[in-house]
Simulated scan of single mutants.
Amino acid sequence: MATPSNITGLGVILGTTDPEPLIEWYRAALEPLGARWEEHLLVIGQQTIIGFNQRDDIADSATEPGRHMINITVRDIRAAEKHLNAMGVTWVRPVEDTGGGWFFSTVVDPVGNYLQILQGPDTP
């Protein structure tokens, strides 16, 4: 029998020179899809958060945006696509059926990070 995992959550912290515009963008992009703002974090799912950190030791924009990719799995990627299009996001990879019931897409956030929106065959 497998031992239960000791891991209870996952968090991503996005460093930026100016967090407010980035926070506003992520809230506008993800709250309509089901994320919620709690105190100073965007809660994406059970035990999963995106945080934001003001930093003065980084560039204003991501120099290698594909190095770290935030992946969000959704129930209805076409609804997410419609919402993101209404926001006027920049698509790096438009929604694509990659086979086997999987759909992938990638948008770029205001500082150049990549956010992937995925839908799988067994997305709960």
Rank of each mutant, 00 (worst) to 15 (best):
I58A: 06
A80S: 09
L10E: 15
T3M: 13
D60S: 15
G112A: 03
P21F: 04
D56G: 14
M1D: 15
E81V: 04
V74A: 01
E38D: 10
I13E: 12
I23V: 11
A35I: 03
R67S: 14
L22C: 02
I7V: 13
G51E: 09
P32S: 04
T106R: 09
Q116L: 06
D18S: 10
E24F: 08
I44R: 00
I44D: 01
G101D: 03
A29E: 01
F52H: 03
V12D: 05
W25Q: 05
F103W: 06
V111Q: 00
R67K: 12
L42H: 02
Q54N: 11
A79K: 08
F104H: 09
I72T: 06
P19I: 05
G9F: 09
T8Y: 10
Q46H: 11
T106M: 10
G9P: 04
M87F: 07
G101P: 04
E39D: 14
D97M: 06
G66I: 05
I44K: 00
T8M: 09
I70H: 05
H68T: 15
G45C: 11
Q54R: 11
S61W: 09
I77W: 03
D109S: 01
Q119D: 08
W91L: 06
V92D: 07
P4Y: 13
R67I: 10
G101V: 04
A35D: 03
L30E: 00
E31Q: 10
R36C: 08
E64H: 15
R27S: 06
L41R: 13
T48C: 14
G99I: 02
A62N: 11
Y114H: 10
V92A: 04
A35L: 06
R27W: 01
Q47A: 15
P110F: 04
N71A: 14
A28T: 03
T90M: 15
T48S: 15
L10V: 13
I44A: 01
G66M: 07
T63R: 15
T73Q: 12
W91N: 09
T98D: 09
P65K: 01
G66D: 12
T98L: 09
Q54V: 07
E39L: 14
V107S: 01
L30W: 03
E96S: 10
Q47C: 10
N85Q: 12
M87Q: 12
